[in-house]
Design a protein around this nucleic acid. Sequence first.
DNA 1: ATGTTC
Length: 478
Amino acid sequence: MKRDRLMKINDLTWEIPEKYKNCMRVPGRMYLSEELVDIVEEDTYEQVANVACLPGIVKYSLAMPEAHLGYGFPIGGVAGIDIEDGVISPGGVGFDINCGVKTLKTNLTLEDVQGGVEELINRLFSNIPSGVGSESKLKLSHDELDYLLENGLDWALENGYAKQDDVIHCEEEGCITTADANKVSNKAKKRGLSQVGTLGSGNHFLEVQYVDEVIDQDTAEKFGLTKNQIIVMIHTGSRGFGHQVCTDYVKKLEKATKKYNIDIPDKQLACAPFDSKEGQDYFAAMACAANYAWVNRQVIASWVRDVFHNYYGQDTELETLYDVAHNIAKKETHTVNGEKKELIVHRKGATRAFGPNHKELPSSYQETGQPVMIPGNMGAPSYILRGTQFAMENTFGSTCHGAGRKMSRSQAKREYWGETVQKELSKQKIYVKATHGAVIAEEAPGAYKNPDKVVNVAHNLGISKKVVKLKPLGVAKG
DNA sequence: ATGTTC
């Protein structure tokens, strides 16, 4: 990245001045270490500046420490936009609407699973469909799907896939109530009918981990986390359903951008006034995809429970720590220049990180702030952090969602061979089971930035604070 | 991310 256009605010905060582009309404703000500044692509910097041109954006166009190139908005991008005179943009949510992480904490320890991880992962792999276009054991009728889209986790509760505790420990309690299934195309619904309870492909995974290090003892206790405890992380989203919703609405909002004479520097920032018919239709359809993803992760969690119960006994506990979205636009109230404002907060490859005493958090997390899950890569640690007041004041309550790619998928496939990567991971006692070698090559640890360095920026800055460090034992991938 | 090229 060209440093001459960046203004250094402090060691971890960099600003793109408002005057960099004529259309910018606010400055850009990127949270990066010196080292990360050097590896962020020039185009990512441009994307942060472009987002600053959107009508209604307040404070800053933000980029979290993992920032890299995305569709229109950067991955790791956060934008708070005034709902009264601002826009909503599908590019600020991403194609995989409500891609996110659900974390289950077990009552098993490292000792309990030693020697059995390979068998456990194989069982998880064969019980939870994965891969591109994978189909579920669960087939829904059109009416059932419509109900699921508008009711989210309540559908899972009523159909025996969830407990009340799962609903409480899920962002938004697993349902954006303004979802309207009439705003979703039949094409999207057709793709969605057979994919509830499927993992998908790419960076999606199901990982068995253990708590390697307790960093914040007090919060770890409140989260119910202890050293050597076995943890399961589920990373997936709304599959072909959400992808189709995004595709449909990018086209509709490209037209709306022209209709409402909105001047944008990049076609991929297609948007509509939040308050317009097009904006509200997208928001109602996006909510359906968000609800779909919460149900998807919950159904997978339910099958994960079945596998553990069969393998380790019926009394094995797998409680939800939390389920959090990292590709979503949410209606939230934040303080802007001393005034409370209703915003549509776009988080794209960014995790919500609400701090203590936030009314939207369950009572169990009022004191600590919400749990934040940041996966690393197949061969590296993941972290559980907590949300902070600093995040509320500086990032609309957001932090990074992962380490961020360092290499494109195609480049990774040129650099790595799946089976070689698998063998190297095996030497580190990490068992990987995938549909084919290409996915392992694309997801090779070397294709990602060092997660410790990215998480440390978030931690040192204070937009989330480390609670425990997790190490992978085995992973099932699509 | 994605029935990986409308």
